[in-house]
Design a protein around this nucleic acid. Structure first.
Lengths: 342, 342
DNA sequence: CGACGTCATGGTAGCGCTACCAATTGCCCA
DNA sequence: TGGGCAATTGGTAGCGCTACCATGACGTCG
């Protein structure tokens, strides 16, 4: 009666224990758990009873090793605290909570090198799918993604040449739409204020520039950027900088809503009338934008939906029916509010 | 020359390939990778060369199965988008990025049942450590934590009777301090406004109540709460509700900074002077609090540091030297600002 | 100088599970 | 009535790695 099993395993029940108790083969237990329809109802019940009684939980590591495939979604985002990515991640979590898939979340800190490192780590687990933010992977990262042997979804942006699938929208169009709105509202000396100029912000800036040039209004001195991470306090400082350069500034398109909020507060503080003297447009449309006083015009992006859609596409691909539309553009929406209503 | 290995493995190099190429035993490769000091320098070099040439990456699943221990930290938080938890998680990620440990992040949605389910899932992986938010686990969850067989750190709060270790601060004291500050500043009809009344919010409310009662100012009508998730727009609505109940309200202690910001905006909109007519105190001290106009008094909490400290303690326990101080109180700080300076 | 550690290395036997290939049964159709 | 086929179940052989024990080759010390 010496149980040799006691050596390493923490004594937790294994599939063999369940099989013994249910009076069936181990493989049948395995099947009953993964493909119940292939096991007769009678055995299924016996096995379930044994599972419940023993409190058996399959070991995901053994499972992954034996099947050469882990039930894990690898997710790579550049920031965990930026509300935008937090929402995408939330969408991913919510879509996956009812599935057997676990989530492996990586934070690249906006670094291509860190992204490569994490892709290496994640890849070594043979994940079921990979979801990565952005479309500007380094060549090495791209190669890792292509050879991952699983569905890959690039999120947040759309663009040509996906590794596999894409869900997002055009940041260029977003920037252009925001700027055109300011122009139409009658603003002329419209500045761009942007922090942490990642590739998406660069494209928003390009959209801004296109709109300004089309209207014959572009002036490089209107553009104020910094590589520093974005924050509300930074928005305040940057408006000051922008006004120091161009005192006649009468509008700003902000990189994101944190910056926009900082700009609004600085306007209050400096008694600059919004929208009369300066018009403000943000980006992403956080909840607080419509509550602010005055409420702030912003480009609403569908972040949560991006996360959900990415999972749906990956799941479909795993199930064998890859979506026909490999690039999904979820668009955005201009929310006109008081901050540009002059 | 038939490689039987081609059957399931994706053809990736294994430890046996490395061993063959380096002309040593597989176990020596394993050791060279995990405990380099136990292998002679010469072999170490040969092995490293073989690893580099083959592009060998250890399979974490096989490793976990063989050693009955996964290099994974399980982390459970109630929300991914709430900045407070995002910061804690960021601290955890930053502290672990240089280590071999991966992170398994779970979102409980403030649900005890979901926490149990996730604990079950996480436990089945035999994680190296578990970090969970809060101290109010269900009895079932507590049992799971106690039998996890790894270090456990409860974060965000301190309290008696830790499962294993704790890092946080007293929300009761925070609530009391905030309220006492308002009282000292001369406010009398001080309301409490709180959304999503999770256990931590309940304790802040208890602190508020203690302070108000001690000053002989407590009145149940001053308390406005809702189970709805917190948001800036909710803060606005709740101030309206509170004023409808108690028109003479002259101060509010808000559950958190989002609510406080909503309250501030509503004051602007309704032309209520802050801090003159109403004083406002928030909780957590988000970056925007000091930028707001007027700037908002808040209780600064050390969220990022909580994450870092939790990891440090878990890592120490894993290494065999459990910290003597099993309960670490990181405290908080009252940041006095314009919103209460009357 | 022989017994006894210590160090470096290797072999063996699993960890818990599933892919792959039987084996058995019952049923349908020619 | 026999062959074929689907449905159900099981055995065997790993997946890639490490725990455990064994083996030599050296010193070291009484």
């Amino acid at each position: 009666m010496i149980k040799p099993r006691s050596r390493r395993g923490g004594g937790r029940p294994t599939i063999a224990d369940v099989a013994r108790k249910a009076g069936v083969g181990a493989i049948t237990v395995s099947r009953a758990l993964r493909e119940p329809e292939r096991v007769s109802e009678e055995l299924r019940r016996q096995i379930q009873a044994a599972v419940d009684e023993l409190g058996y939980v399959p070991d995901p590591n053994a499972r992954a090793l034996a099947s050469a495939r882990a039930e894990v979604f690898g997710v790579l985002v550049p920031s965990l605290t930026n509300n935008v990515f937090a929402e995408v991640v939330r969408g991913i979590y919510d879509s996956l909570s009812a599935s057997p898939f676990r989530i492996q979340l990586g934070n690249t800190h906006y670094s291509g090198l860190e992204e490569e490192r994490l892709l290496q780590v994640f890849g070594s687990q043979r994940p079921a799918a990979l979801i990565v933010a952005g479309i500007d992977q380094t060549p090495a990262s791209r190669k890792l993604l292509e050879s991952a042997g699983c569905p890959v979804v690039q999120v947040m942006e759309t663009g040509p040449d996906p590794v596999d699938m894409m869900v997002g929208f055009s940041h260029f169009d977003g920037g252009r739409t925001a700027t055109e709105h300011l122009i139409e509202a009658g603003y002329r000396r419209i500045g761009f204020i942007g922090a942490r100029m990642d590739p998406r912000s660069q494209r928003r800036l390009a959209g801004y520039r296109a709109a300004m040039e089309a209207a014959g209004l572009f002036d490089p001195r209107l553009v104020t950027t910094t590589p520093v991470p974005s924050s509300v306090s930074l928005g305040r400082e940057m408006l000051r900088d922008a006004l120091a350069k161009v005192p006649t500034l009468d509008g700003v398109f902000c990189n994101n809503d944190d910056i926009a909020l900082g700009v609004l507060f600085e306007c209050h503080r400096a008694s600059i009338a919004v929208p009369k003297t300066i018009g403000i447009v943000g980006f992403n449309d956080l909840d607080m934008m419509q509550v602010a006083f005055p409420s702030i015009t912003s480009i609403r992006t569908h972040r949560y939906e991006i996360g959900r859609r990415a999972v749906a596409m990956a799941l479909a691909a795993i199930a064998g029916n890859r979506p026909e539309q490999r690039i999904v553009d979820l668009g955005f929406e201009l929310k006109r509010r008081e901050s540009t209503a002059r």
